[in-house]
Design a protein around this nucleic acid. Sequence first.
DNA 1: GCGTTTTTATTAATCGATTAAGCATTCTCA
DNA 2: TGAGAATGCTTAATCGATTAATAAAAACGC
Lengths: 345, 345
Amino acid sequence: MKKVSLKDIAQKAGVSTALVSYVLNGKEKETRVGETIARRIKEIAKELNYHPNHLAKSLRSGKTHTFGLIIADISNPFFANIARVVEDEAKKNGYTVIIGSCDENADKSWDLLNVLVNRQVDGFIIVSCENSENQIHYLKERNIPFVLLDRHFPDIQTDFVATNNYKASYDAGVHLIRGGYRNIGLIAYKSDMYHMVERIRGYKHALADSQIDFHANWLKEVKFETMEQDVKTAIDEIMSADQKVEALVFATYGLAINGLKYINELRLQVPSDLAIVSFGQAEVFDLYYCPITYMRQPLEMLGKTAVEFLLKKMKNPDEGMKQILMEAKLIARDSSMAKSAWPAG
Amino acid sequence: MKKVSLKDIAQKAGVSTALVSYVLNGKEKETRVGETIARRIKEIAKELNYHPNHLAKSLRSGKTHTFGLIIADISNPFFANIARVVEDEAKKNGYTVIIGSCDENADKSWDLLNVLVNRQVDGFIIVSCENSENQIHYLKERNIPFVLLDRHFPDIQTDFVATNNYKASYDAGVHLIRGGYRNIGLIAYKSDMYHMVERIRGYKHALADSQIDFHANWLKEVKFETMEQDVKTAIDEIMSADQKVEALVFATYGLAINGLKYINELRLQVPSDLAIVSFGQAEVFDLYYCPITYMRQPLEMLGKTAVEFLLKKMKNPDEGMKQILMEAKLIARDSSMAKSAWPAG
DNA sequence: GCGTTTTTATTAATCGATTAAGCATTCTCA
DNA sequence: TGAGAATGCTTAATCGATTAATAAAAACGC
């Protein structure tokens, strides 16, 4: 009933634990273990259903073959899916992932980081939240390998894997403009995070490049914590402004969900009353009565590459920084249909 | 840069590691450590930013303060949310959770179980998949504490926390019948799992209790692996049968998503062409043009109770089995609107 | 002052596995 | 035949923390 250890096998075979360890680790050749006894040891191991104690292994080797994945918001299906990709990819490489969500809260993120560091994880993949720069510096100081995913800090030299948010947002804007929309709004988070800044910048540039004057009240920045109410207010304002908006970009999945709910409440028709393009991705976008155009981020590639970078970093910490920006792809659906294609009515 | 251990502190303080251990574990009183040196040790610990090595602690104590959560399908938001609840609740109790998804595959589930057992997790919360009874027996034999969540095996004596699926399904049926629907279909998984069997049983009883003759082609059992295609076929058949169906119950979230997509393709109007009630819960149900009626399971309570049971089990393995069935609540929306309330047209 | 507590701190075994170093044998070949 | 090589296995230190057993020093009693 109690656990079987090397010692138990050694005892039963009448040899030292060293021999058992050598054999079970496939080092019989290098360490010249007798063939007969090697076979016997393997037999006994199987017979006793031996499984090595990873704690002991890890303590000795300093490697846990585990890494931490700290995610800004696991209730966002985009991140949930990324988590899945990361987990699968890690498993393929013999690693276990411990996932934690900090819910966009830097303090929670600190706690998670500490718990995981104390559990001796070998490295981190992190989707950073606002005001968590200190945590990145901490990891750098302690020489703990990590890769930033989806969000990064331009002022800190780190490995990262992210989307080209400027480009994605620019493309979203251009797409709507080409569809004949000119008064275009953007609902984003109020945040200093670079990815959000870039999404706003891309949107503005798209307008500017088409000689559309940007109106300050087309851009609404809402707080994550009070998103539900703020989004309603934002839409109210945006729809009643002097330069009433005819198309709207949601900068994240969460904003889109809340926005679409309210748009339904208001009985606004998409796209005739309001065209929509959103970031994020989820089944909701397919199932909405008017399927939602969205920027598809290369989820699979993002996750896989992050794991790849991390594994490389752990193997060779002194190699140069690996940084990559991937392109998002606009998936055009009815919610942003060109005005010219609108059904009569 | 390298990690700070008890020994480092001991050296700096000029004492043995034992003293340091006592002090940092708050056992200064019982072990009568001198006040002066105790204070000094704490100072040095803080100064060196000491954090204990949990591997070493665990190896010694045999407790990792970690448990495994094996989930049948993490891409199902119902389970994703449960995972979140479990994680939060565990954290409150000082436990870390390692989550794994087996994607309804018993082999994968075995792998996960083994990985986690070898990592010496203290216990398991498991959403079982089909044909994984042997795994449950294995845990029982090895005396590893566990609690089954959401799904259980009536033939195996275990702790479990689940929903009363019979009742939920019965209620769904009755709700539709009261709304004036009589030809009612059910799309479920082809599975021997008890929760699915119960959902089918409840549905049939609801019909029977209202003197509605059950037609075999109202019930479609599809395979998880080929769900997308199977659901389409099922809906085609169900809508063209002799006794064409006018209302449909989806036994899971995944089935609902696929079903609704196809219903959109077919341009069927909900609820006039087809009324809907679904299990599972997600934002999609709110955002659908005709909000979907669903059975709300007590997600929060399920997760919390599972953790509670597990902690109790770990503390006191010999206490009796804890088993609980919780009630789901029908959330009525437009998708199952009573026929009498249909807008004219 | 000498034996007895009380107080305070140390020693060393332990958890389970790894691995460098060392000790016997047996083998090889000049 | 005997020095050196090859073979086969054991010893013991190590990872970092815990803790029972024990020792040393100080305080106390008479």
